[in-house]
């Protein structure tokens, strides 16, 4: 007896969506390259990281289908990202105040 539990998710993402996402990603990349040539002082790092985060959210949500899949994947991923952020913050409690 072959027992199969195939993927229940029936949403097929159209090619078009991926092209749009790629265009946005390329636009964000171009922005971050251009922005670094402008002197923003301490904001440079922040801007670059914000743009990188936006890009990775797009990749996670659309390319990796978190937007279309069951919520469990998204919850787990969100939890892991929060964990990483807390760990970095706690580590810097040492370095900021040393």
């Amino acid at each position: 007896m072959k027992h199969i539990m195939a993927n229940k998710n029936n949403h097929i993402v159209p090619y078009r969506t991926y092209v749009y996402v790629l265009l946005i990603l390329l636009f964000l990349t171009a922005t971050s390259v251009i922005v670094t040539n402008i002197e923003l002082g301490t904001l440079t790092v922040t801007t670059a990281l914000v743009l990188a985060s936006l890009k990775s959210i797009l990749v996670f949500a659309i390319f990796m289908h978190l937007k279309f899949d069951q919520p469990v994947y998204g919850i787990m991923t969100g939890g892991v990202i929060i964990l990483i952020i807390i760990v970095i913050l706690i580590t810097f409690l040492d370095y900021f105040f040393r």
Binding site: T29, S32, V33, T36, T44, V45, A48, L49, L51, A52, K55, S56, V59, F60, F63
Partner: peptide, 16 residues
């Protein structure tokens, strides 16, 4: 692999 590069790229090449 792409997401990791998305972060490596600004950290090494851009934040000058």
């Amino acid at each position: 692999v792409d997401v990791i590069w998305i972060f490596l790229f600004p950290l090494f090449y851009l934040i000058t």
